[in-house]
């Protein structure tokens, strides 16, 4: 099928890191059912601030599932500071590209990870610059309200 790259189809058909982490150190959820996609990222972070384990759950299209899978692969085993640097562009490139109207799926993946890290910081009273975390995903522009 020419809609998606081989990489996207591989991560869609065989998604890595699907599931839930009980008592996760950080959880981030973005999107909403009205728009047709929700991503939830669970992080297990050790004392050295390394992401030891990451899991995701996604409700959405093929590229949303593939973007979640790829994003979790990219941050697994990385320091939290590196995970915060993950951009949607990096996710898209790692997937060998996404169709133009599916780029927002990679944006959701980036935002879900940032939100999970923020949750980790908040739970552990770690100080941070609020500017590094974007506001909640604005649904108005993605589904016409």
């Amino acid at each position: 099928m020419a809609l998606y790259s081989e990489k996207v189809m591989d991560h869609f058909r065989n998604p890595r890191n699907v599931g839930v982490i009980e008592n996760a150190d950080g959880v981030g959820e973005v999107g909403n059912p009205v728009c047709g996609d929700i991503m939830k990222i669970y992080l297990k972070i050790n004392a050295d601030q390394i992401i030891e384990e990451v899991k995701f759950e996604t409700f959405g299209c093929g590229s949303a599932i593939a973007s979640s899978s790829m994003a979790t692969e990219l941050i697994k085993g990385q320091p939290v500071s590196e995970a915060l640097k993950l951009t949607n562009k990096a996710v898209t490139e790692a997937l060998d590209g996404l169709p133009a109207h599916k780029i927002h799926c990679s944006v959701l993946a980036e935002e879900a990870i940032k939100k999970a890290v923020k949750d980790y910081y908040d739970k552990n009273n770690i100080e941070y610059d609020p500017a590094i975390f974007p506001d909640d995903h604005d649904c108005e522009h993605c589904c016409g309200g």
Partner: peptide, 14 residues
């Protein structure tokens, strides 16, 4: 309920 149509179609295609 609880799922999205495109991923449903892609997996049915498989």
């Amino acid at each position: 309920e609880g799922i999205e149509g495109e991923s449903l179609l892609l997996l049915l295609d498989d």
